[in-house]
Design a protein around this nucleic acid. Structure first.
Lengths: 204, 204, 204, 204
DNA sequence: ACGGTCGGGACAGCCCGTTGAT
DNA sequence: ATCAACGGGCTGTCCCGACCGT
């Protein structure tokens, strides 16, 4: 397994976090990865676009994994998972001086109109997140007809929170948003179980 | 008042909606505005950055105005205003084939790290929106300690909804998020008035 | 009238003579013209292709003029004009150490398949030469049904002679070809006037 | 005899016909030959230049053979052979949509100044053709002092006809030139035999 | 003040022809 | 005979001033 190829992926992800797609030049990438242009085009013949697509897919899968890890903490409700998720992101943001944001949100908007393959790559990632959230919420007892919208709302709020927190350089913004989203999810669980105690199984 | 200057502002806003800051070149701007480079540098000696800052401020003010207009509809609750806001954005998005998104969200992330003046310009806009939302929510009876976070959540969800809807080319995503945000706001109003009727004045 | 633009045209023509189209880089052109890339793309927004097309047209017109000058020498038959033409080219080739060949022949073959606008530009030049030759030959009494083919043959032989002479680095090759073409043209004139003296006017 | 090596030769010849030397990249060659770069450098350690030199020599020999075949048709005069030669080339050109021209003419001009080994390779091919033509013409009775120039003229006209026909996308141009060259050759034969019938031996 | 023409460098993304590891 | 890696050079376009007319 090629090491250089892997280095391209990770360093590009970092640069995308910081600057997005358009502001990141090939030269910056090769410098950061300590490799040459020829090397890059050897592994990614499709150039910057192909590299970006793979970065998005890879990073998206990693975030998904992290998300699932949080949701799988034993004894943790789906609502409390939200708090963990947003607070974790807030802390990461703080500790990296507001650099270490999600590269996919950063890239998504600027490529949405001009670059369809990249747009689709981002869409796939967002969908994978939302799908996972839907599963979690339904297992927590959320009504089926609300689960999808709720999941989208969580993802959207997370993305928007990144924008606001970075723009304001204030991670507490993100924590506040996390609290509200937690409330929203809790209420959705409660609403779905009006008659009795929730048995934690909305699907069976 | 110069017409050319105004044309620069509006065409640049359109281009930012579509492509963001970095992907929009000076040439594109002058072509779209049917003006020359010399002209642009006459009106905006600070170049692209100055132009962008003014675009953000101008567009931000326009959106704020629209936001206030919605909130001022007589007989409309703060929660129902949310529905109007998101559905309006969704329809606009649909009708423009997912081009006519908010230019400020599009620009904010890509300049947050690399361009402080622009970052601050965006921050000011977001703050103005949040401040207005805070006022509205408190007038609706939301508890003072929740109003700020709730306002941020609304703005964040709106921004995130733009990202998701454009990426998926699906405006219904945004409508679903609008429903959830409406629910959240309604609950916040209800939660704040457990004992009796809301006196509509949390500040006095 | 811009001086820089004119310099681009002449230096590029020289480089095309020497190396052809594909082997001549934009950098070489700007270096030779002592100008910058921005300058070049200001005058030739269509880039190398547009520049090449104008070079071909300009150089083609100059050669046409030279050709007409030779043909207009008083008291010179059309056949003797051929000798002058080929010998002149041979001497030029010799004196420039086989560098100063016709840029259009050099360019024509390499762009014929890949670049239609350039192919057409070359075609127009060749046609203008052949048309002029046709006029001259018909005035000299060549039969109308042979004049066109004869003109093409002259142009083709000239072009081919450039190839052979440069490849062999032997200008006498071109002089020999000139002699044969002169013979061919003389015979065509003689053939057309079997019965009596030529009245020198096949058109009026 | 390696098959891969042979495939390199033929596919490169095709690409040279179409695009010439400089416009043909190593990648194109390896793609077309369905081989790898390493493979190419294994067979041709001298790289692109060595490959080109061998392509020129090989293709040149093939054309020479074809030329000799035409000249050897029994009962065919040297002048009529010219008609066959040019008409054959014209038809080939037409049927291949003006792609299948001679790769050597295409390459000769663009490498004449910059690449001496390649220039010499082309020269050798042209000389071999002219030598053969000289032999044929002398056997047909052409005066010794004209045979060389006549041979050069034929080769030059053929090369130039390729240029004109491809540039104009008109194969009839080549047929017309063929007619004139045929006339020229016939006259040269006639001129050399003023007193009596040609005994077919101009050398003895 | 307002704007248009011309020009300047720098660097973007890409791909070239080539060589080692192995 | 292959995969990986290398630099450097390609065309094109960036953002920006200077010098001109109004």
């Amino acid at each position: 397994m090629s090491d250089t190829r892997h280095r391209f992926l990770t360093t590009t992800a970092s640069l995308f976090q910081l600057q997005g797609f358009n502001a990141t030049s090939i030269k910056q990438i090769t410098d950061a990865a300590e490799a040459t242009t020829g090397s890059l085009y050897h592994f990614f013949p499709g150039g910057k676009d192909q590299l970006a697509a793979e970065v998005i897919a890879t990073a998206g899968a990693q975030y998904l994994e992290m998300f699932q890890l949080i949701a799988a903490v034993p004894g943790l409700g789906a609502d409390e998972a939200m708090t963990l998720l947003f607070n974790g992101a807030a802390t990461t943001l703080e500790q990296s001086d507001y650099v270490d944001a999600c590269p996919i949100f950063t890239v998504a908007l600027e490529v949405a109109s001009a670059n369809d393959p990249l747009r689709i790559a981002c869409d796939r990632v967002f969908s994978s997140w939302a799908d996972t959230a839907v599963t979690i919420f339904r297992q927590a007892g959320v009504a089926p007809d609300r689960a999808a919208a709720l999941a989208s709302t969580v993802v959207a709020a997370l993305g928007g929170a990144f924008v606001l927190a970075r723009t304001a350089k204030d991670a507490n913004l993100m924590r506040g948003i996390g609290r509200e989203i937690t409330t929203l999810v809790r209420q959705a669980i409660v609403d779905a179980a009006p008659a009795g105690p929730d048995h934690g199984d909305g699907e069976a």
